[in-house]
Each structure stands twice: as C-alpha cells, then as structure tokens.
C-alpha cells in the first residue's frame, strides 16, 4: 500500500515536470490562468493597491497577455519575485512570463538561457540622494555609502562606475526596494542607486519626496522588458506580439475607448489585421483572431498604459523620453503587422 503511494507520487512528479516542458501557450490555456512574475512592490510598475489588486506599468502588460491568450485580462496570478529569485522562478516554470523591470543583457540571454522578447521600458541607472547632502553629481560621491539591490545589473554597473571615475564607495547590499528605502531614509546610506524609473517610483512613495533628488548622471543602459524561457518560440512570439500590438495601437491611435469603433470603421489594412477584422493573423500564433483587440480594449495602448501608471501627472511623473514612439523621436518601434 505504502509502496504504491510512493510510486504514485513519483509518477505524478515526473508527469508534472514533463508537462512544464510542453508549450507554455497550451499550459496557460489549459490552466485558464496566466502566472506572471512581478515585482514584490514597486509603485507604478507592479504593486498591489490597498484592496490587493495588482496595478502598474508591468502589470498591465501581463494583463494584456492574459487578454490575448485567455480573452480575459483578469485571469492573471501575480507572483512577487525579488531580484534574487526572479530568474529561478522563470526557469523552473513557476511563472509563465516575467515582467519585472529586468534588464536585457548578453549573459542573461545566453548563460541563464532566457529570452528577452522586447523592451517595454528603456531605462538607465541613476542615483538618489537627500537634498541636504549638497551633492549635485554622482562623481561627487567619493567615499559615500551606497544602498544597492542584490542580484541586479545595477550592482555591477555601480562597481564599474566608481572604478572608472577612480572614486571609492561602501556598498550596502539589500534584498529589495522596500529594504533599500528603509536604509536610505534612516540615513544608513548616503545614496540609493537603481534604475532611474525605480528611483522615481520609490521617491513617489516617500513622505518627504521633495527633499530627495535624482542625480543627473545615468550610468548605464537598462533596457527593461518581459522575459520568457529559452526554447519556446511560440510563447515568446505571443508575448512579443502582444507588446507590439500595444505599440502599433498607439501609433495608429487605437485606444481602449475607441477600439470597437475603429474595428468597425477602419479602412487601414494593418489596423484591420491587428484587430482581427480581416485575415487570420491570430490563428498563425495559436490564439483567437480578435485576441489583440481584447488586449487593447482591456488595458489600452502603450501610451495609455504609460500615462495611467507612470506618466506625467501621476505620482511617479516620468516623461516619455526614450520611450516615446519612434515617430515622436523615441525608441519604441514595432515591426509591421503583416
């Protein structure tokens, strides 16, 4: 009796681990829920609100993927991951996709066997200091104590930056954003460094936001984007084109408000293909023909997502900058939808 239970457990484990290696798209459909690796809480990008609903710039991309695959933007389970645990969670199949301010680098692409499918936010690493420290440039930080999140690219950039400028610093490594903020606010470190967007998001939650400044130096390129496991091209395509669909929607002026109207009346062939009015583009990806329309209706286009979560006027107050569409001098550019 005992033995059969034992072997049964063995067989079940083998089956489950085997299933995780099948197509992620089919897994998500079968499960009826998308599991999205998110931040442990970074206001504006991915954090639960007062009533426990996840909101944010990265969160909305997860919702868009859920809308594309399952037709329902609410069928997402958000799994908070730290800088340390995020890639392991993805590799082990605990999450289907990781949308968590993760920087696209060569070694993550190759050595960690991950696929960065797009860049949804072009960022760079910056420094935040208290105003009364009297510092106006990162190069004046010689001898300073710097708080840094462990397991991130910023950790390595920081070492490089100080070495290049021939100045010294004392690192204080912390696990996540909230711990870094606590140490920084308590004065245990003079400066806090992470992606500039993350700094802006942190500052927005501080009680005395006006007393903190973000230094002008941006010391690195931090292209942040959604990540999937290596070797599942179909799923990578789904995530990639969900994101591009949101970009094209902004380029074509399709918003969550007018998407149905545009679908009915547009004469633009690309728009008609995108919204599933003509052609069978969805079928080629193994999703519904109106999948992208669902996504746009649920979360809006890229510009709307940006403005709603982190844009000017929100507490985060980030300018579009590099993240403007290519037509407006930015870097956000989607390949043609045909």
């Amino acid at each position: 009796m005992k033995k059969s239970v034992f072997f049964g457990a063995f067989a079940a484990t083998a089956l489950v681990s085997g299933m995780a290696l099948a197509g992620t798209l089919d897994d998500v459909k079968a499960r009826g829920e998308l599991i999205c690796g998110s931040n442990t809480g970074l206001t504006g990008f991915g954090a639960p609100d007062a009533s426990g609903n996840w909101t944010g710039f990265d969160v909305d991309l997860c919702r868009a993927i859920a809308a594309v695959v399952l037709g329902d933007a609410t069928k997402v389970k958000f799994l908070p991951t730290t800088g340390e645990t995020r890639f392991t969670a993805l590799q082990s199949g605990e999450v289907d996709v990781l949308v968590r301010n993760s920087t696209w680098t060569y070694s993550r692409d190759t050595e960690l066997a991950l696929d960065f499918v797009a860049v949804n936010y072009y960022d760079g690493q910056g420094f935040m200091v208290k105003k009364d420290l009297g510092v106006s440039s990162a190069k004046e930080l010689d001898g300073a104590t710097v708080c840094i999140q462990t397991g991130t690219t910023t950790e390595l950039n920081l070492a490089d930056f100080f070495k290049q400028n021939n100045i010294s610093y004392q690192p204080v490594t912390v696990q996540d954003d909230s711990e870094a903020q606590r140490q920084y606010l308590a004065g245990a470190c003079d400066a806090y460094t992470t992606d500039a967007s993350g700094l802006a998001a942190s500052r927005a939650t501080m009680p005395d936001a006006e007393n903190h400044i973000i230094l002008p130096e941006i010391i690195s390129k931090e292209p942040l984007g959604p990540v999937v496991r290596h070797g599942d091209s179909q799923w990578a395509d789904v995530v990639r084109w969900t994101y591009y669909a949101l970009l094209i929607a902004e380029e074509k002026g399709i918003t969550s408000a007018n998407v149905n109207e545009v679908a009915a009346s547009s004469t633009d062939e690309e728009v008609k293909r995108l919204l599933g009015v003509s052609g069978d583009m969805g079928a080629k990806l193994g999703i519904g023909n109106d999948a992208f329309k669902n996504a746009i209706a649920a979360v809006g286009n890229y510009g709307e997502i940006f403005a709603r979560n982190i844009g000017e006027g929100t507490t985060i107050n980030l300018a579009r900058g590099l993240n403007a569409l290519w037509t407006q001098g930015g870097l956000q550019y989607a390949p043609p939808f045909r």
Binding site: G83, E84, F87, R108, T150, G151, T173, V174
Partner: peptide
Amino acid sequence: GIAVSYLDLRGTLGGITLNQTGRE
C-alpha cells in the same frame, strides 16, 4: 547574516555570485 546584509559565504557565493552567474 543575509537578513542584515552581512556578506558572508551565503551572501557572496550563495547570493551575489549565484545571481550574477545563474549557477544555482
């Protein structure tokens, strides 16, 4: 010590090195 950011063996080999190289 990881709880107070003390970089001992767990913090270096099992923390930062593990993370940056992905060799869990």
